[in-house]
Design a protein around this nucleic acid. Structure first.
Lengths: 297, 297
DNA sequence: GGGCGCGTTCCACATAATGGAACATGATTT
DNA sequence: AAATCATGTTCCATTATGTGGAACGCGCCC
């Protein structure tokens, strides 16, 4: 049929990673229960394969062939071959019985890319300092589509879950980093995002409408980019955040310091504000300084 | 069936970019061992795409088109379209200038699969116990091809590198987990692996030949599967490990406790041996108990 | 301005994915 | 035991999909 060639993107030289207005309608509140946050519908062979991989990786349990068949709308024959290919590439592992789970190659690949992530490595010493000064958990998050994805996390002293958050995503409208990011981008861009979000009232203090959020963003901008998550995502959890902008790559990021609300009494919050802002600005500075890393390779 | 051998690729896959010159803040002592076990040759569309993704994810710096072109043997036009596809799927991000880095989808995908990994979640309480009892770093590793990949790690202290090891790979012949795994598998299978490894003498005490390793495996089997890494991978680092076997899935894994050698004086090692063995056996037991992973959780 | 490196685009071509239908397997029922 | 069903696997004609050589546009430096 009149199959239009995919050429809407990258036509110019502009950078638009995921600019298409295609919206995923899944804003999962729980960490690991996202069915498919499809960045793009599965076009092309690669897209189809990733769609299947998404299903498998998102499942909490090993899936049988039929389970996958039910979720992907591929025909049996097609799906079977796709699975074979995925297994062959070690992206998927087929267990003794006929169940499929995510393969280890994914982890290996992600570990390497994470380790080589420039923002992460640039930010590391700074968030470490922040973590030491606050004594609490700090996060480094990046805007990705309609959500924020955490690319690093340093825990507070106590030995809680290790890196539960790295790679996990959270909503923009009810996290410190998310709001800081929104506030740090051009108003027209943020407005577009704000309108399109899928809101849920996680706690009594969640800002659960676009207008509430816009008002909040105004406040944040007035505070020069400092945002607060006042138990808006999880009850009892307070956090202070600040955006980080990198012009050359068009990336929006942010850092946050998090603590149980009761521990943030008196002027601690103000102290934190300074620490967090300093951290964010230091990262932004370092990041900007590495404009032309062309020299040593 | 006679799997049609794919196009010969003259194993020059694991091309390791120069490791020096970059003042990587978070320099790992032994991030990835050079001789890369090619997971599978890049056959099919998926394979080709992954080959490109591998190159990008492994690079410490954003790569330009030409850089990738040089490493992949694809023609210009082909490579360009593949990159376009990868970017379209958010597996690769193209920066403002024409450089490519790994996309965030990889991290998100891996995080979900990691979080849903059954061995990991089964093992977690046990390795946490082990970590608390030893007070040192513990690892959970799985055999993957010719190397061991770490799927979890608990640090002794909080301040050091966070989860540098998760997703990273290490050689079989000079790590506690690796040797424990080899010792726990059928001799003919392990012998096959032992012969095919690529040995490097990381330290003076590294077992750097198949025969040395085989002798060691015999000792380990005599000790009922307890293995020791006596500064064989990194100078000054000692570790005690034990294998974990899961019949149904055919997976070989292992746990280890690691510490600076000087801290393991006197009878500490013997105590550790008991702790590590108990931990491994407990995990194996729990794992076996979940034969029918049909139920929830 | 001419040469050159680099990224991008085009398009005839053939490879590689498609999916409906048949086959195989094993458990459950009649 | 035969019949039924649910499941996983294979086959193969069709064509959508990826291929790659060549040409184009662009910025840069002799």
């Amino acid at each position: 049929m009149a199959q239009m060639r995919v050429r809407d993107r990258a036509g110019e030289m502009g950078f638009d990673p995921s600019d298409n207005g295609r919206a995923d309608i899944t804003a999962d509140t729980s960490p690991t229960t996202g069915p498919n946050t499809a960045p793009t519908n599965g076009s092309g062979t690669l897209g189809k394969a990733l769609e299947v991989l998404d299903i498998i990786a998102a499942a909490q349990h090993p899936l049988r062939f039929t389970d996958i068949l039910a979720q992907s709308r591929q025909p049996r024959g097609t799906l079977h071959r796709q699975l074979t290919n995925l297994v062959h590439e070690d992206l998927v592992k087929v267990n003794g019985d006929h169940t499929y789970t995510a393969g280890l190659r994914l982890l290996k690949l992600a570990a390497r890319s994470w380790s080589n992530n420039s923002l992460r490595s640039i930010a590391y010493p700074h968030i470490k300092t922040l973590q030491q000064k606050t004594g609490e958990t700090v996060h480094l998050g990046v805007l990705n589509g309609q959500e924020v994805i955490y690319i690093d996390k340093l825990e507070s002293r106590q030995n809680v879950r290790m890196h539960s958050q790295v790679g996990n995503v959270s909503p923009l409208y009810c996290t410190g980093v998310g709001k800081a990011i929104l506030a740090s981008m051009p108003p027209d861009q943020s407005a577009l995002l704000v309108e399109g979000l899928d809101y849920h009232r996680h706690t009594p203090s969640t800002l659960y409408t676009p207008s509430l959020l816009e008002a909040e963003l105004k406040t944040i901008r007035a505070k020069c980019g400092l945002s607060h998550d006042r138990e808006e995502h999880e009850p009892g959890i307070y956090c202070v955040a600040h955006g980080i902008m990198h012009e050359p790559s068009g990336t929006y990021a942010g850092v946050s310091a998090t603590a149980p609300a009761f521990r943030l009494q008196g002027d601690t919050i103000e102290i934190w504000e300074g620490l967090v802002r300093d951290c964010a600005l230091a990262i932004a500075q370092d990041w900007a300084d590495r404009l032309g890393p062309r020299s040593t390779e």
